[in-house]
Amino acid sequence: MNKHIRAFVVPVIAVVVFLLFWEWLVWFNGWPRFKMAAPSDLPPAFERHWPLFLSMGWQTLWRTVVGLFLAVVFGTLLGMIMGFSRTMRDALYPLLVGFNAIPKATVVPIVALMFVGQHDFNTVLLAFMISFFPIAVSVSIGLSTLEPEYRDILRSLGASQATIFWKIALPKTLPEFFGALKVAVTLAFIGTNLMEIVSPHGRGLGALFDSGRTNSDFPLMFAVLIALAFLGIVLYYFVVALEKIFAGWAERAPG
């Protein structure tokens, strides 16, 4: 079989088999719609609520992206501080680990109370809080593990710290950065949805999910899950595309 056909056909077959199995499971057990949805229930659910999916999906998407953007800016700065200064790393690392260890679901009510009614701000804040950690850690590790010879090559010519950062440290950290960004994308979605579901305020796909829950509308709930997965995949591959452009050199040629 041709390599390209295989790369395309095999995953498609796997998905189809999975969907058929799911359909069969629901049919075989005779589960009603208020207990479980089958794949065949999803298209009608999407059709019925299509305008809602579009508007709510957009709200979830932009708030996630803004939160992620802030996480990239803040995480990179924090990573740079920790990567360049040992003292700052010793000072900040325990705080960072402690902060990361707090389950963010418990932060939702606090944030919602602190900034009552500022739903967009709250949601962006949570997406940000949950996703900056891997970025900060990877950037700091990338910078602090730079082999001294790399520095020496430029320093022996009289290059400044800033030059060394731009010419060597930053590009060298990019593969780690993008690895972390892929994790952060997924995390940011979790943050957005936590806020939308735990502190319902009628916006975003989380709200749509919540309304499905109150009505025991399983087809709607599953349709929301699929929509969320779709957005997550789109954003993930957007990051992969950026990675190819900026850190494509890190990918070894096969063989």
Binding site: E147, D152, I153, S156, L157, K167, L174, W249, A250
Partner: peptide
């Protein structure tokens, strides 16, 4: 440091994101 010195180490420390020519020109 003075720019009249050239250095090479056991680890060639080439920059992976640059071509060989661009590495030499660094």
């Amino acid at each position: 440091p003075r720019s009249t010195v050239g250095m090479a180490f056991q680890n060639p420390v080439l920059l992976e994101w640059r071509t060989i020519l661009k590495n030499v020109l660094l």
